[in-house]
Simulated scan of single mutants.
Amino acid sequence: MRTTTKRGTTVRALTTLATVGAVAAMTTALAPPRASAQPTAPHASRSGACAAGQLCLWERPDFKGPRHTYELSNTDIESCVPLPAGARAESLANRTGRPVTTYQSAECGETGEFDTYPGKGSGARLSESPYQIGAIKIWER
């Protein structure tokens, strides 16, 4: 690192800051990918906003409360994916382009309630589920 001064300002501090910034950028770029079948962190919804390619589940009816978001890139297809421990959902938006089954049980048990969206007579958005959703399964097609 070179130290020069110009009008009483030390360039060393600027060079150090640039180096720290470059290391931080490389660390972020080299971070390991998220574990499979893990939703992104819950966060507040914006009037039921859900991006293309995502399955979004809200903990309360009418797309309110914390949101759990799943994507095909980090969710095992045709596998039971329970919501995080203690979490439940009561509304959803399916923008994956694939059918998604929601289950009342956290084990995708068919002894409780379950429905597929979109399905016969149902769209890809559900403002109020008839049961609390405990798990999901995204189908191939």
Rank of each mutant, 00 (worst) to 15 (best):
L83R: 00
E78R: 06
Q38I: 11
P66Q: 15
Y103K: 03
P66R: 15
P42G: 06
S91V: 08
T96N: 02
A85D: 07
I138R: 06
P39V: 15
A87Y: 00
Y131F: 15
D62Q: 13
T111P: 01
V23C: 07
L17V: 09
H43N: 10
L14M: 01
T19C: 08
A87F: 02
W139N: 07
R12Y: 12
M1G: 15
E71S: 14
R12P: 00
R12I: 09
L126W: 12
E59Y: 05
V20P: 00
A49M: 10
P118F: 09
D76G: 03
S127M: 05
T5P: 00
T69Q: 10
T9Q: 15
G21V: 08
L72I: 01
R141C: 04
W58C: 04
G121L: 02
R60Y: 12
G86Y: 05
S105M: 01
T15S: 09
G121T: 03
P99Y: 08
I136W: 10
G119T: 06
R7K: 13
K137E: 03
S36A: 14
K120W: 09
P39W: 14
G65I: 13
A37V: 11
C108T: 03
D62C: 07
T16N: 11
E59K: 06
P33G: 08
G53R: 04
R141E: 10
H43T: 11
H43E: 12
V100M: 04
A89D: 07
T75D: 14
D76W: 00
R2M: 14
A22T: 06
G119F: 06
R34A: 15
C108G: 02
A22S: 07
E110K: 14
Q38H: 12
A31C: 03
S105H: 02
L17T: 06
A51T: 07
D115W: 15
N74P: 05
W139R: 11
A135C: 06
A89R: 07
K64C: 04
L92P: 02
T102N: 09
R125K: 07
T10F: 00
T9A: 14
L72M: 02
K64Q: 15
A25D: 10
A49V: 12
A24I: 05
T116I: 07
T5I: 03
R98H: 15
S122P: 01
A13E: 10
R95E: 07
R141N: 09
L30V: 06
C108M: 01
I133R: 08
G97Q: 02
R98V: 05
G8I: 07
T16L: 14
Y131P: 11
R7M: 13
T28N: 04
A87N: 07
A35I: 08
R125Q: 03
A29D: 03
A24W: 09
S47V: 11
R88K: 12
P82A: 06
L55Y: 03
P118C: 07
S122E: 06
Q104P: 00
G123R: 07
L83V: 01
G134S: 00
R88L: 11
Y117I: 01
Q38Y: 12
G119C: 02
R88Y: 12
A52P: 08
C80D: 09
S122F: 05
N74A: 14
L14K: 01
P33K: 08
R141Q: 09
G48V: 08
T102M: 13
A106R: 13
D76P: 06
Y70R: 05
T9Y: 15
T3M: 14
V81H: 03
E59A: 09
A18T: 13
T27K: 02
M1R: 14
F114G: 00
H43Q: 12
A52L: 13
A51E: 09
M1E: 13
